[in-house]
Computed example of a mutant assay.
Amino acid sequence: MGEFTRSLTGLADATVEAYRRDVGAFVTWAERAGLAGPEGVDRLLLRRYLAYLATRRYARRSIARKAAALRRYFAWLRHRQLINADPSARLSAPSGEARLPRVLSPSEAASLLGGPPEAAQQADAVRLRDDAVLELLYGSGLRVGELCGLGPDGLDLDRSTVTVWGKGSKQRRVPMYELTVAALQAWMQRGRSHLAGPETPDDAVFVNRRGRRLGPRDVRRILDRRASAPTYPHALRHSFATHLLDGGADLRVVQELLGHSSLQTTQIYTHVSKERLIGVYGQTHPRA
C-alpha cells in the first residue's frame, strides 16, 4: 500500500489519505470474501462492492470517491504489471447532488473575527495567532492545508500578498487586506516567539501551544473556541468566495483567487449566492 500512496503525486495530502483508506477498506472486504490477491478481482466484484456500500448508507459522493480510488489503484497495479487486466476500467458510481457549502453571514463573520467574549480571552500570544489565522482564512480564502503549510517566505507584508502551494502543487499569489496584514504583523512580531520552542520548524508561520507546526485539528479547535455555532475551517473559504460574488466580483477573478483549475468548480458559489438572494427576497418582499 505504501508504494501505491507514494505514486499519488500531484494530489492533496488529504486526498492521498482518503484514497489509502478507501483502498484499504476494499482490500479488507475482499479478503473477507475469500480473495487472496488483486488478480482475483473482476468488474462484477467491484460493482458488488459499490452496491454493498450503498446498502451501508454511504453518501453517493463518498461512493463516487471510493470508485475513483479503486480506479487509480487498479490502474497502478496494471501499470506495474501486477495484474493482467484492469477490472476497474470505466467503473463508475453516481456522483450525487453537489451539496451547497455553509456560508457565514456578514454578521457571523464579523463576530468570529471580533474575538471571543471577554471571559474567554486567551493568553496574548494565542489570541494574536488565532486572530491572524482567522483573518487569513476568511480574508484570502486559503485552504486550511495551505495555511498550515505556510512558511515565512510566502508572506510579503509590504506588498500585502501571500503565496501558497495549493492542490496539484500549484502555486498562487493572493492579496491580503489591511486587517489581515496587521494581524499577521502582530503575530509574527509579538506572538510567535512566545509559542516557538526547540521543536519549532523555521519554515512554519503558525505553531501550536507545543511549538509545533499548526495542524488542521488545531485550526478546528480555534474555530470551536471562537465561533458561536459549529463551523469548519473550509466554511471561511466558502464565505470568502460567496461574499466576493455577493459584492459583484467577477467569477473568473474568484476562480483565480481560490486556485480552482476549472471554472465549473467555482460556479457552485454562484448557486450559493442565488440561494441567499432568494432567501432575502422571500423574507423581505411583501408579495413573496
Rank of each mutant, 00 (worst) to 15 (best):
E3P: 08
F4T: 02
T5D: 07
S7P: 01
G10H: 06
L11D: 04
A12S: 11
A12P: 00
D13W: 12
T15E: 09
R20H: 09
V23L: 01
F26I: 07
V27A: 12
V27I: 12
A30V: 06
E31N: 10
A36H: 14
E39V: 12
R43K: 12
R43Q: 15
Y49H: 09
L50I: 12
Y52P: 00
L53D: 00
T55V: 10
R60C: 12
A64D: 09
K66A: 06
K66Q: 14
A68C: 04
A68Y: 01
L70R: 00
R72L: 13
F74A: 01
F74T: 01
F74K: 00
H79R: 15
H79L: 15
L82E: 15
P87S: 09
P94H: 04
R99W: 07
P101C: 07
R102E: 14
S107A: 14
A109T: 11
A110R: 14
A110H: 09
S111P: 04
L112M: 06
G114D: 03
G114F: 05
A119V: 11
A119R: 15
A123Y: 06
D124G: 07
D131W: 07
D131N: 14
L134D: 02
L136C: 07
G139N: 04
L142Q: 02
G145F: 08
E146A: 05
G151K: 05
P152T: 03
D156M: 10
R159L: 13
T161Q: 14
K170P: 02
K170Q: 08
P175M: 10
E178V: 13
S193P: 10
A196N: 00
G197N: 02
E199L: 14
E199C: 11
P201N: 08
V205L: 04
V207P: 00
N208G: 04
R209N: 11
R209Y: 10
G211S: 07
R212W: 04
R212G: 11
P216H: 10
P216E: 14
R217T: 13
D218G: 12
V219E: 03
R220K: 11
R221E: 13
R226K: 08
R226A: 15
A229Y: 09
Y232H: 13
Y232E: 13
A235W: 02
L236T: 05
R237N: 07
H238K: 07
T242P: 04
D246V: 07
G247S: 10
G247R: 10
V253E: 09
V254F: 04
E256M: 12
T265L: 06
T266F: 03
V272R: 06
S273K: 09
R276I: 06
R276C: 08
V280G: 05
Q283W: 04
R287D: 09
